[in-house]
Design a protein around this nucleic acid. Structure first.
Lengths: 145, 145
DNA sequence: GTATATGCAAAGGGTTTGCACGGTT
DNA sequence: AACCGTGCAAACCCTTTGCATATAC
């Protein structure tokens, strides 16, 4: 259900194949995680004329055909990643802003719980979980002593 | 640890007591959940001269003395609420945008898990959980039939 | 040839900042 | 009297939109 070449995925939904769409998709795959701005920079290494508004429109299209997804990491711009990657939850540290990815399976029970108790079908990969990472917890423990 | 009158909380940290700070705090408490813009409108019902930048600065101060907190509900503006309210997680529906609050306890096991497995101290109340609510799930089931 | 995609520029939300004035302490 | 807080305006980041041109089909 998700392994046809990217051109077919676009064509099936009536979208055209353009160099911009190819470059954006390649950049997302290469970057792993990238904001629209980062993707622009990456694309411009190959094609300097590409415009930021094209990046936004292209990300929307690629997401609509399930070639990519995005996650909200915090206040700033969202990060886009390949849909192929194994699904993961983003843990963002409030102190040092470091982002850790953990397998989506970590939230399986929690999701099931929300489903059973509230009938809510949670997409745990779409919004990051904020908190304090190991390193920062240790740091504050040391300072307080 | 959190029940001194609001004036004292501010003073203890070297902040001054101003009408704006009182009005913002009252508005947050009254609204339950409010974006900065909504809080502005609410404050302006009493004091029409208050400026939006004051709302932002005031929310920051009130949060720094733990009188209020904020949650990111999605793309848009964050919502602020009283720190007193019982801690809750926000479930946001991707389809209808409805926000449901559920007791933070619902994520207790999940948090513990993240702590034990990844050493990450999750603040589940700070970012909403997105997904599809009961009603929207049912709707799509009916359409597909 | 026709519809879609792009580039460009402008506008739009949401938020922050510099500065002079005014109010709290 | 000293300093902090406020209003105002400008600037900022991120994103969307209208329109004319270019391009995939």
């Amino acid at each position: 259900m998700a392994s046809r070449p990217w051109e077919d995925r676009l064509r099936e939904q009536g979208f055209r194949i353009t160099p911009q769409r190819q470059l954006v998709l390649e950049s997302v795959n290469r970057l792993g995680h990238g904001t629209p701005e980062e993707i622009l920079v990456s694309v411009q290494e190959t094609a300097s004329g590409v415009n930021l508004s094209t990046i936004y429109r292209t990300l929307e299209v690629l997401e609509s055909v399930s070639l990519i997804t995005h996650t909200h990491i915090g206040h700033g711009a969202p990060v886009y990643h390949s849909q192929d990657e194994s699904p993961h939850i983003h843990l963002v540290c409030d102190r040092c802003a470091e982002v850790t990815s953990v397998p989506a399976a970590a939230a399986a029970e929690f999701s099931l719980d929300l489903q059973e108790t509230y009938g809510f079908d949670a997409h745990m990969t779409h919004m990051a979980v904020t908190g304090v990472c190991t390193k920062c917890s240790e740091d504050s423990r040391t300072e307080t002593q």
